[in-house]
Amino acid sequence: MEIKLSVKNLDAYYGKNKVLKNISIDVPKNKVVAIIGPSGCGKSTFIRCLNRMHEVVGGTINGSILLDNEDLTKTDPVLLRKRVGMVFQKPNPFPSMSIFNNVAAGLRLNGVRNKKQITPIVEKCLKQAALWEEVKNNLNDSGANISGGQQQRLCIARTLAVSPEIILMDEPASALDPISTTKIEDLIFELKKDYTIVIVTHNMQQAARVSDYTAFFYVGELIEYSDTKKMFTSPDKQQTEDYIRGKFG
């Protein structure tokens, strides 16, 4: 099994406050890894380290994160983020741009200006995000005038347009209704054919449904990381079992 992303002894800080302690995780290629754990356990911080968004809000890290055996903590973050895309908890399309331009935004940021080149990519990404059928007749409407679930799929399409290798999802369905959530989950299942996905989720059923591997975080530490099936049937650690059974968290 090919390892796409390898996190080694990662510590993360906000100022002097250590929020992640000695995390080591290997993410295999074309698999979905779910990060679960109670609020404040450092799940979001962890995936924000993976595309170096953690440092945008003033955080610092220690340790190494290897993307295809190259330490991403030493590369240019702007270039890195083109390879490691991110979908946020709250849908955040650009309201001043049309649906079309939202998807094209990433391409334009990368200097692709030719509309003939952009149009097919936009269509392809909207199809991949299972949004094409719903918006193909109003591509010029504002990206903010569609439903929350559609906005989130639009954000996924926008992320896909840059053709990243890894997609990070920070509780992508937590602000959505059950039907939209199902759509997003189906989408994740489709996307893993082409991408490697790391998803943070509050919802353990969701982790069980969409992921191949699951990591359980608790107060900044990685308690257990294993095959999802094993994790949800016979976890090694008592703490994991308690959390999964709903005894705390």
């Binding site: 595309n51 968004m53 945008v56 702007v78 270039l79 983020r81 083109k82 895309g85 991110m86 946020f88 709250k90 955040n92 399309p93 650009f94 935004a105 990433g106 940021l109 990368n110 954000c155 926008r158 992320t159 840059v162």
Partner: peptide, 14 residues
């Protein structure tokens, strides 16, 4: 909102 800046940065914007 900060999420707008993050959206742009996450797409590889400078």
């Amino acid at each position: 909102p900060r999420s707008q800046r993050e959206a742009a940065l996450a797409l590889g914007a400078s």
